[in-house]
Nucleic acid binder design. Structure first.
Length: 354
DNA sequence: AAAGCGGGGAT
DNA sequence: ATCCCAGCTTT
């Protein structure tokens, strides 16, 4: 008998959610649809999308045989559009390879596009009551704390330990195993999402507080071990604040790309601002270095070295990059990258921009 | 502004 | 077979 799973199940049945639209069915199609949507979006946002999908595509075969653009249009607003394409590809494979019926177990479900081991297990548990463990981000956090597991859970060795624990602590087989699996799987998700949260775990009312290593050692806030923040590569760029009669020269950023489609300051690779101006067709009457500042992106850190240039003679080159002169007073409403807007507004407020 | 996130794709 | 990322959210 497993104390851990018993407590999770009991807690879920008393305090968990039971009325979400995808909880009143064992239809693997509906459960799969909800799991894919919930991977990236919170419940309140998902519900209207989920219901629109079911109205438009009552069965997985309807979804499989719809044009991709219809699927994408219904998905619009949920984000992560590659997952919508996987959703459609998955439906088509279930239609053609499985005769429109979802595969019968988690192992086969995990072969489908957009579905990994954890999502496959969740579908199999909710749809079939299969005794197969999930291990998503919420569950990793619960396990790291409850079992006192150190190390980055996204790393191979730690993740393997957690999968082993997930197998070990499944509700035991038996006549009630299918119902137990449904409650247990939902309970683990609910616990991680509502009580055992990242920043502020509510340990006082946790159903497994009696056995929790992290709580006993007061290490809830240290576990799970944060992933090692890899040193992000750093780059530098010169940026030109070219001013002429109270207006600033902006260029449209190419799309796709960093800041794609936004208006930004001209950039140049070296540290010769006057030469960079000349390539644009601007003669610099005066050029002054402004303080360097940095901006962090997901994959690198950018050190920006801005120059303030008073334009003299002008003969702007047309090299295909759209350019505009922005009156300094119209900074507020302009579609500029946040750090660029901040730089320009700072200059404007200090009266360094006319 | 920084950290988190499941699966796909790259290596 | 293993590592890293894209693209979006929450804190």
């Amino acid at each position: 008998m497993d104390d851990f799973s018993d407590r999770i199940i009991d807690w879920q049945r008393r305090h968990g959610r039971h009325t979400l639209p995808w909880q009143n069915t064992h239809d693997p199609y509906r459960i799969w649809l909800s799991e894919i949507m919930l991977q990236q979006t919170q419940v309140a946002t998902v519900i209207p999308y989920y219901e629109r999908f079911l109205q438009r595509f009552p069965t997985i075969v309807d979804l499989a045989r719809a044009p991709e653009e219809d699927v994408m249009a219904l998905w619009a607003g949920l984000g992560y559009y590659s997952r919508a394409r996987n959703l459609h590809a998955c439906a088509r494979r279930v239609d053609t390879e499985w005769n429109g019926r979802f595969p019968p177990d988690a192992a086969a479900i995990a072969e489908l596009p957009g579905i990994g081991r954890s999502t496959a297990a969740a579908i199999a548990a909710f749809a079939y009551g299969e005794r197969s463990p999930i291990l998503d981000g919420n569950v990793k956090r619960v396990f790291a704390r409850y079992f006192g597991i150190e190390g980055d859970p996204t790393k191979r060795p730690v993740e393997m330990r957690m999968w082993a624990l997930a197998e070990t602590h499944l509700p035991p087989p038996g006549p009630d195993a299918a119902d137990a699996m449904r409650s247990y799987t939902q309970g683990l998700m609910d616990l991680g999402a509502t009580l055992c949260t990242r920043g502020n775990p509510d340990c006082g009312v946790c159903p497994v507080r009696a056995g929790c290593v992290a709580l006993r050692e007061a290490r809830q806030h240290e576990l799970p071990t944060p992933r090692e923040r890899k040193a992000v590569p750093e780059r530098r760029t010169g940026m030109l604040v070219i001013e002429k009669a109270g207006e600033i020269l902006l260029q449209r950023r190419p799309s796709p790309g960093i800041w794609g489609g936004l208006w930004s300051l001209p950039e140049f690779p070296g540290d010769d601002a006057a030469a960079a101006c000349l390539t644009l067709g601007v003669t610099a009457a005066a050029a002054a270095r402004l303080p360097t500042f940095s901006h962090g992106f997901t994959h690198f850190k950018l050190h920006i070295e801005p120059w303030h240039v008073q334009a003299g003679a002008l003969a702007l080159r047309d090299d295909g990059v759209p350019q505009i002169w922005l009156p300094a007073g119209e900074l507020e409403g302009a579609a500029l990258p946040a750090p660029v807007k901040k730089l320009l507004q700072g200059l404007f407020r200090r009266g360094e921009l006319l």
